[in-house]
């Protein structure tokens, strides 16, 4: 324990990674709660995998992988959002298509990147400890912006998630709000890819929120608890991984999963203490 504290004091990059991971978990708690109540977990999964296409294309053309991932994630999210709004196309099919086509595009692009071999596992499993400080800062700014928008528009987001028909009747711009939420989701996904990698984005987005849902009586309460659970899992997971030389993303997810299944079990054993 004292070893970890000494490392934290000594290594700036470890502090930055911890700070970045916690900030991302906070945003993730807020946007993830909206995603969980709207049952949009798999949308996030599709968007995450689509971003690999953007990462591959960016590296192929010498651009930053963060911007490539952001562009592909936002484009994929808006495409899904637009398809859902128009109806017609089966959302499940659209997500599957985005999921695998994005992945395929990424693999093909990465295989063509010249000069040095790119290890896709960096993006698949993430490693926040290896991310350069400037990218971490950019992700932090994206996080902060997404958080600000989500808090500012909390009321209409909540109403649309709970009762979209009422939102329409009240004359709220439901379609625009939906696309905006999809954009926020995409940005959070990009930030999460750095922390846990794109394969495990769904887990960190939904597990803390689903855990919080079990103990919350309001959406705002759920968001606060999800942010707390996510931050705790990320911080502890990161430090344990550092200390024991484990992969950080996977350690964080194992913790978040353990907390979630623990909460489910706890409520099963003491049903009347759980709030319904």
């Amino acid at each position: 324990m004292s070893g970890i504290l000494a490392d934290l004091a000594q290594h700036g990059f470890l502090r930055n990674a911890l700070l970045g991971g916690i900030l991302t978990s906070v945003v993730c708690g807020v946007v993830g709660s909206l995603a969980v109540v709207r049952k949009m977990g798999y949308v996030a999964g599709g968007v995450a995998h689509a971003s690999l296409g953007g990462i591959g294309a960016a590296l192929l053309f010498g651009a930053s992988s963060l911007w490539g991932a952001s562009a592909a994630a936002v484009a994929g999210a808006l495409l899904l959002g637009w398809m859902t709004l128009r109806g017609g196309e089966n959302e499940d099919t659209a997500i599957s298509a985005l999921w695998s086509v994005g992945m395929a595009a990424g693999v093909v692009c990465l295989s063509r990147v010249e000069g040095y071999a790119v290890d896709p596992s960096t993006f698949l499993f993430g490693n926040i400890l290896l991310i350069p400080a400037d990218e971490l800062l950019a992700a932090g700014i994206i996080d902060a912006a997404a958080l600000a928008v989500a808090i500012l528009l909390y009321h209409p987001f909540k109403l649309c998630a709970f009762d979209e028909e009422l939102a329409r009747i009240q004359g709220l711009p439901v379609a625009a709000l939906h696309l905006l939420l999809m954009t926020l989701l995409a940005l959070v996904v990009v930030a999460l890819i750095q922390v846990v990698g794109l394969l495990m984005v769904i887990a960190l987005l939904t597990l803390p929120a689903a855990t919080a849902r079990r103990f919350s009586r309001s959406l705002s309460g759920m968001m606060v608890r999800a942010a707390a659970v996510g931050s705790a899992c990320t911080a502890v997971g990161l430090l344990v991984a550092w200390d024991r030389n484990l992969p950080a993303g996977a350690t964080i997810i194992l913790l978040a999963g353990g907390v979630y299944f623990g909460a489910v079990l706890l409520q099963r054993l003491r049903p009347h203490r759980g709030e319904r």
């Binding site: 109540v37 709970f162 009762d163 009747i169 009586r217 309001s218 959406l219």
Partner: peptide, 21 residues
């Protein structure tokens, strides 16, 4: 609407009225 949404009766009523961003 979503019946499993975490919301109290009071808060549900308060969602009514004029729409506002």
């Amino acid at each position: 609407f979503r019946k499993d949404f975490p919301i109290s009766a009071l808060d549900c009523v308060a969602l009514g009225g004029k729409g506002s961003l």
